[in-house]
């Protein structure tokens, strides 16, 4: 396989995916997202902005009981998804949950208050403290997930029609007028991003606002994000900024902070959209060590070739054992 392509473009670090996809030397810099989940406030402005700008259809209103997450996950009709995780664990040095020294409002009768019939209840002597050292260890993680625009995008590699392609910005986009709905990209994506729209048959995912990029505008989600949790820019610059931000949080004692998908050495050659997380990736529903499936494609074809040869050879041997048919007749 690698000999067909000339060099191995199936896995490993790759400095210029757009150039390797055939875009001329004057193609723009590779761009992407750095999603810093430590400042995400879970407002879902990104989800809304994405749906609005890209005219993504409504896909049902369900109450899931998964904290404030009723969107559930990325899919054909959800290109940004905000995850909510409730944990009984402190976030660095932050005060979380009930502060025993503060004011407890649990005894306040808000209806009476609204009617103006009673004065606010006085603060109780001591708030209830569930943990031995006097703290309620609750933290709420929020993270806005998106297509990773992988350096080695399995969805793109396996697409039999070329509907998925690498743009001049190094991003991965589906051409809706070419997709034949074969659905091969769906189980190929190691992150569970791209999916099929049932009524339509074709697949849909984040385009990193290809149309906006062409006009020199940043993607709608990054534009709408009120805390700059979603940062858009040239990938190299984002990686530098992310490294600095990680250092800042580690220095401040937030030891859980970790970057996810920023390393060009990882199994997909690095993500075009990478993250700063405050816990392990699987906590957010992300695979801890994704590998582009096509990395093993040469090995798959080798084994298939051997299996085909075994079939041919085995059946030939069977006939060799039964050659005497004409004579017997």
């Amino acid at each position: 396989m690698s000999s067909i392509i000339g060099r191995n473009l199936l896995a490993g670090a790759e400095a210029d995916p757009a150039g390797d996809a055939g875009h001329g030397a004057d193609h723009p810099e590779r761009v992407g997202f750095f999603t810093d989940t430590s400042v995400c406030i879970g407002c879902k402005a990104c989800e809304v902005a994405c749906k609005e700008w890209n005219a993504v259809p409504e896909d049902g209103l369900e109450l899931t009981g998964m904290s404030y997450d009723n969107t559930q996950g990325l899919g054909a009709d959800t290109w940004r998804h905000v995850a909510f995780i409730e944990q009984d664990k402190p976030l660095g040095h932050a005060v979380t949950g009930v502060d025993p020294g503060g004011v407890d409002h649990s005894g306040v009768d808000v209806f009476a208050l609204a009617a103006g019939t009673t004065a606010p209840a006085p603060p109780r002597e001591q708030a209830e403290v569930p943990t031995p050292d006097g703290r309620t260890e609750l933290r709420w993680l929020m993270a806005s997930d998106v297509c990773k625009h992988c350096t080695h995008a399995a969805c793109l590699d396996v697409c039999p029609t070329g509907a998925l392609f690498r743009t001049e910005f190094g991003t991965v986009v589906v051409q809706e007028d070419i997709c034949n709905g074969c659905g091969y990209c769906v189980p190929a994506c190691p992150y569970g991003v791209i999916d099929q729209r049932k009524e339509d048959g074709r697949v849909f995912k984040c385009t990193l606002c290809y149309d906006r990029l062409g006009e020199g505008m940043e993607p709608a989600c990054a534009k709408a994000c009120p805390t700059d949790s979603i940062q858009f820019g040239p990938l190299d610059e984002l990686r530098e900024r992310a490294a600095a931000r990680l250092g800042q949080l580690h220095d401040a004692g937030v030891a859980d902070a970790q970057l996810y998908g920023e390393s060009p050495q990882d199994g997909v050659g690095g993500d075009g959209a990478f993250f700063l997380l405050l816990d392990r990736p699987e906590v957010y529903g992300l695979p801890p060590d994704p590998v582009v499936t096509t990395r093993d494609l040469p090995s798959m074809w080798r084994h298939a070739g051997a299996a085909a040869a075994t079939l041919l050879g085995g059946l030939a041997a069977v006939f060799a054992l039964h050659r005497d048919y004409r004579k017997a007749r």
Binding site: G92, H93, V95, T227, D228, V254
Partner: peptide, 22 residues
């Protein structure tokens, strides 16, 4: 870019008499 992106969430600045979470 807005400065809020630098908020040190969970950092020492928030409260200081607290052991870090690791």
């Amino acid at each position: 870019e807005r400065p809020g992106r630098e908020a040190v969430v969970g950092g020492e600045q928030s409260v200081s008499d607290r052991p870090p979470s690791g």
